[in-house]
Simulated assay, not measured.
Amino acid sequence: MSRVVVTGRIPETAIEKLRAEHDVHAWTGSESIGREELLHRVAGADAVVSLLTERIDAELLDAAGPQLKVVANVAVGYDNIDVPACTERGIVATNTPGVLTEATADIAMGLVLMATRRLGEGERLIRSRQAWKWGMFFLLGSSLQGKTLGVVGMGGIGQATARRAKAFGMDIVYQSRSELDPVIAAELGARRVDLDELLTVSDVVSLHCPYGPATHHLIGAEQLAAMKSSAFLVNTARGPIVDETALASALREGVIAGAGLDVFEREPQVHPALLDLENVVLVPHLGSATVETRTAMAMLAADNALAVLSGEQPPAPIN
């Protein structure tokens, strides 16, 4: 039996699947595992099932030892993993794409609705127990029908978000490294543009691109200034894609109308300036937070680890 180390709490069904074949050591603490404890636990591991809260770098890979065969990340994003370091050591790195597509698109569309219709402001007003009265100009928001959604990164989640937006009567433009399949493009009525054009024509910009050096602060002061003053920004991808200092300034000064964020630059910290603003919706990385999705993610990660340990090709390899 191989030694499998799970770096954080995951659904028990995935633990049971791993335990049926291997010796599993799973972290069960309510808080994230500390770095020193993690380095100690991975020693001698043949497989590491990791959460996005853990940094899987050369130090950790060396601490595990030369027998380590696979790092199975329970996430679609893998900016927490040093993939070249894995490749250099002959370690397979995997992720969990596909299974969280619909749940994350739901959150993206939810943020669009919350931001444009000022639902967060309304809910806070009610809970503050302040007196309020219906009126023609009370908490006026913006409708979506006939407006344009700009999707940055037209992978599976971007496409799923675009389908939801189309159902609300929105037009779709997108920026992506490659063209959409013509059948999908026709279904969505989506037009490919460069980022500069997308920012200027969109009423809502929704971010779905992967995070890496090329997309660090992809949306900064210059890009925010290019957007319509009536536009909204939504980020369900990775926090550092957006320069939060620039975003807070743009929201405060009316450069754009509002924003909805599920991810943050320095999670779990949130930029203090954002916390003081009414025109931004802030939720704590809930994109994949359904029972069904988190279970599917954990099960796919388990399948990835089990495949590699059996000498087979994993369902979702990164390298």
Rank of each mutant, 00 (worst) to 15 (best):
T245Y: 11
I318S: 04
Q145D: 02
L300S: 00
R192N: 08
L100M: 14
L261R: 07
R41L: 11
T13S: 15
T148L: 00
C86A: 11
H216F: 08
I126F: 10
T104H: 00
V204N: 10
T101E: 03
V263I: 13
K69M: 07
E123H: 05
D171N: 05
V152R: 06
A64N: 07
G153D: 05
A298Y: 03
V283L: 01
I91K: 06
L100I: 13
P84S: 13
P210Q: 11
P240C: 09
C86Y: 01
L140K: 07
D57Q: 06
T116W: 11
V24K: 08
L38G: 05
K69D: 00
M109C: 06
G146H: 15
R9Y: 05
W132D: 02
Q159C: 06
M114F: 00
E54N: 11
P210G: 10
A64S: 09
T28Y: 12
L39Y: 04
G146I: 14
Q145E: 00
Q313L: 12
H22T: 04
T236K: 03
F138L: 00
T116K: 11
L139K: 12
V283K: 04
M154G: 02
L180P: 13
P314T: 09
A259I: 00
R294D: 02
S143I: 08
L113M: 15
A58M: 03
M299I: 15
Q313E: 14
G287V: 12
T53N: 07
E187Y: 08
E31Q: 09
R177D: 05
V49G: 10
Q130S: 08
V281P: 12
L125F: 06
M299H: 05
V24T: 11
V74N: 07
A237V: 12
F232S: 02
R252N: 06
A289Q: 09
T295A: 02
K17Y: 11
V83L: 01
G34T: 12
P11H: 09
T101Y: 13
L139Q: 10
S32F: 09
L61P: 13
Y174W: 07
E187R: 01
E31G: 01
G110P: 14
G220E: 01
M170H: 05
